[in-house]
Amino acid sequence: MVARLIDEDPEGAYGYSRVALRLASRVAAVREAAGFAAYANQKYGEALAEFRAARRMTGSVELWPVMADCERGLGRPEKALDMAGAPEVQKLDKAGQVEMRLVAAGARGDMGQLDAAIVTLQSPELASSSVQPWTARLRYAYAEALLAAGREREAREWFAKAVEADRDGSTDASDRLAELDGVAFVDALDETQEDSDGAKDDSGSAGEGDRD
């Protein structure tokens, strides 16, 4: 239920995770699920504690990047950067290493080191033309870093590249690209409601005039 609800109903997922913890707190998968549920609800201290517990049980480094991001959430970007340079990172698979790079760049940005954030994201994975599961998010983060540094033209180029790679809509790169191009989206339902309200007002005014 945590996995089913976490994207659409993070509070509900968190509630189920607390029940699971009461029933099976010594199961690593339960501690990990509880960590992600807390993370989704921005309860970063709680999430970090659960991830640490899961790591102690399994000995795996898989959760290292999200643990570092919890440090960011707790206002400790320096700690996140320390974790980005730790030996554990070398044990991560390619996806984990890319995730760690994203966290490190975010930490640099948190500290106001905008140029360093850009450099952190520059990597063979960013330069590659092949599309991997992490490609859209990596390109999006790079575009965000460029935009934060005032390099709007380059940011637009990378938001466009993120759109090309974002096959499942995991980012809002298309919206960001439209914003940079000055395109404004109008909700058709809102327009219909406004037209309907306007018609009612016009009808009401005419009726009052007839009565006069």
Rank of each mutant, 00 (worst) to 15 (best):
R4V: 08
L5S: 02
I6N: 00
E8M: 03
V19R: 06
L21N: 03
L21H: 03
A24G: 11
G35H: 07
A37W: 06
A38R: 03
A40F: 09
A40I: 09
L48I: 01
E50H: 15
A53N: 11
A53P: 01
A54H: 05
R55D: 05
M57E: 10
V61M: 07
L74A: 07
E78C: 02
L81V: 09
A84K: 00
P87R: 05
E88T: 03
K91E: 14
G96D: 05
Q97Y: 06
E99S: 11
M100E: 02
R101W: 00
L102P: 06
L102I: 11
A104F: 01
A105P: 02
G109Q: 12
M111Y: 08
M111G: 11
M111N: 09
Q113L: 12
Q113A: 12
Q113V: 00
A117E: 05
Q122D: 07
S123C: 07
S123P: 05
S123T: 11
P124V: 07
S130V: 11
V131C: 10
V131T: 14
T135C: 01
Y140V: 00
A143S: 05
E144N: 13
A145Q: 05
R151P: 08
R153L: 14
E154I: 08
R156H: 12
E157I: 11
W158C: 10
F159S: 13
A165F: 02
D166R: 04
D166V: 08
R167E: 09
G169I: 00
S170C: 00
D181I: 08
A184N: 12
A184R: 15
F185P: 00
D187F: 05
A188S: 14
E191P: 00
Q193V: 12
Q193K: 12
E194R: 15
D197E: 14
K200T: 13
D201R: 15
S205F: 13
G207V: 10
E208S: 10
E208G: 02
G209I: 03
